[in-house]
Amino acid sequence: MYSADTGKVKITVLTDDTVASEALLAEHGVSILVELASGHRWLIDTGTTDIFMENARRMGISLDNLTGIAITHGHDDHTGGLTFYSRLKGNPPVYGHPYIWHKSYQIRPGMPVRITGMPYLARKEAAPFFHAVNHVTQLGDGFCFFTDIPREPGSFAPIAGNFFNEDGTGPVPLIDDAAIVIRVQEGLIVIIGCGHAGYTNILGAIHKEFPEEKLLAVIGGLHLTNASETVLAEAVRCTRRFMTDRFAFHCGHCTGENALRYFRKAFGEKAIRPMGAGRTLEF
């Protein structure tokens, strides 16, 4: 079932590492509001703090009575805003892979250990309203949740540096990584939090589920900051296999400037569009 036979799907970036308007605030994180033509409204991720709420207020957007909140993975820059869940009227259900609750740490040479798991207060607030989701699940009219995404042997999946323990033991595979697919008449809109399952793996899983439908847009963070040219070339080839003539990237957060430059050369300037808090898209 398509999300709409008539009308538009509206997507508003509430939180990103950059802003599309100087009237708004930025932070390291992602939060995106999706308003379907049916009237259902979904919040995808909540950023690190309550900035998603403040930016919504400044834009005149109400977050009351959301249909639901979909969490792409458990990292704090996508779940920290759940600390302020009690401010949301309507007690919206929270959906995510069951592993979003696992503790995790990011360890990089020469850097202090970073706690990357969901903050305690966010856990406390969201737990009573949580619904576990696995594999491919249609949460609403044309609104699909993809998780447990298969990772092809040798494919790029940005999970390095993540551990269950702060001493650097127990690598975290980040199997909770998820993507959202919104189906409209013109094609598929894909929203990715960080793409820890690997960009090409995500597109492959989506194409397997919807083999006859084309890719209209990719929005969010792709975690290609440190990707090699080989990885970026494969990302381009994979995208070209599935995309419509109107395809565009709207990416920010962890995508990386190097990846965006590479995509501009491959797809042209018009196909690479900035994200940024305050950006509004209609399809």
Rank of each mutant, 00 (worst) to 15 (best):
M1R: 10
A4Q: 13
K8C: 04
V9C: 10
T12C: 08
V13F: 06
V13H: 02
L14H: 03
S21Y: 04
E22R: 13
E22L: 11
H28C: 06
L33N: 01
V34L: 03
L36V: 00
L36I: 00
H40G: 09
R41I: 04
D45P: 04
D45M: 03
T49D: 13
F52K: 00
A56F: 11
R57F: 09
G60H: 09
I61E: 06
L63P: 00
N65R: 12
H73R: 01
G74I: 02
H75V: 10
H78I: 01
T79D: 07
G81R: 00
Y85K: 00
Y85R: 01
S86R: 14
V94T: 06
G96A: 12
K103Y: 11
I107D: 03
G110M: 08
P112H: 13
P112Y: 13
V113E: 03
L121K: 13
L121S: 15
A122L: 10
R123P: 04
E125W: 10
P128N: 10
F129P: 00
F129D: 08
F130D: 11
T137D: 13
F143V: 03
C144L: 12
F145V: 01
F145G: 00
F145A: 00
D148S: 11
I149A: 00
P150N: 04
S155K: 01
F156L: 03
A157L: 01
A157Q: 03
I159D: 05
I159R: 15
A160F: 12
T169E: 12
G170W: 14
D176S: 15
D177L: 08
A178V: 13
I180C: 07
I180Y: 07
Q185I: 11
E186W: 07
G187Y: 08
I189S: 00
V190L: 08
C194M: 10
G195N: 05
H196Y: 15
T200K: 01
N201D: 09
A205D: 09
A205L: 06
I206C: 05
I206V: 15
F210R: 00
P211I: 02
P211L: 05
E212K: 11
E213A: 10
E213Y: 04
K214F: 11
L215K: 05
I219C: 02
A233K: 11
V236A: 08
R240A: 06
M243S: 13
D245F: 13
D245S: 14
F249M: 01
F249A: 03
C251W: 04
T255V: 12
E257Q: 15
N258S: 15
Y262D: 07
F263K: 01
A266E: 10
K270V: 05
A271I: 04
R273L: 14
P274N: 08
G276N: 07
T280P: 03
L281P: 03
E282K: 05
